[in-house]
């Protein structure tokens, strides 16, 4: 804070020669450039694109099985969730090449025959710190798969897996939209999304700090 201003002589405030216009122009230039970098280039750079080792047609398979998603993504007897099917589940039908698709041939030749598990990228993979109980949601909570996973069961082809280069997370966790805005329940799988539903349904709202869920409901 100035105490010596008093002694100062008057200072010219003339800017003149149109410098103001230049300033505004460059300001806008900087603004637009950085907005483009931030909104367009940055998301492109942030995520690496990975193709699944082979393509998979959910639509086709769901027509062939009796119990919908649970036919392949089933619960084990201890209540844990099996996740992505292992080779032994596929082998029943895919011992030999079925149909004409190129991926089918690759699958049988490179995975079934040598007994090698397919290194699928898992779109919905939650980080290490998360404990998520499928059985609690599906059996006890009566939820369907679409709520969180969207309409993947109706897809005929697997989308590109996008991985965050810094965090290693699948893009589906943060959501396709770089600003993190979601329109459907399955657009994002962040803690806030879990909590939103838990709060709405009143599940485990036992925390002394927040009145919502305590840490160990979802974390391990």
């Amino acid at each position: 804070m100035s105490t010596s201003v008093d002694q100062k002589k008057e200072v010219s405030t003339e800017v003149g020669d149109g410098a103001g216009g230049f300033a505004i122009l460059f300001f806008l230039l900087g603004l637009v450039a950085s907005l483009i970098v931030g909104w367009v280039a940055f998301p492109k750079l942030l995520y690496s694109q990975k193709n699944q080792p082979i393509d998979f047609n959910h639509e086709l398979h769901i027509g062939l099985v009796d119990e919908g998603c649970e036919s392949c993504h089933f619960f084990r007897e201890d209540g844990t969730y099996s996740g992505v099917p292992k080779l032994e589940q596929c082998i029943g039908c895919h011992e030999e090449v079925q149909g004409q698709s190129k991926d089918e041939a690759v699958f049988v030749e490179q995975y079934v025959k040598p007994g090698r598990e397919v290194p699928w990228f898992i779109y919905a993979k939650q980080p290490e710190c998360v404990f998520f109980s499928h059985v609690a949601h599906v059996k006890a909570g009566g939820m369907d798969c679409v709520t969180c996973h969207g309409h993947i069961g109706e897809s005929s082809s697997l989308k590109v897996y996008e991985e965050n280069r810094i965090t290693g997370y699948s893009r589906d966790i943060w959501g396709k939209n770089i600003s993190g805005i979601k329109t459907n329940t399955y657009d994002r799988m962040k803690m806030d999304d879990c909590s939103e539903c838990h709060v709405k349904k009143g599940v485990n709202q036992s925390s002394v700090q927040t009145g919502k869920g305590a840490c160990f409901v979802c974390h391990k």
Partner: peptide, 23 residues
């Protein structure tokens, strides 16, 4: 003076735009 002003404005604009972007 003009260059100085331009660069300055560009930086300020860039900073504002960056802050308004998800970056």
């Amino acid at each position: 003076r003009r260059t100085f002003l331009s660069i300055g404005s560009f930086i300020v604009g860039g900073a504002a735009g960056t802050a308004l972007s998800p970056l």
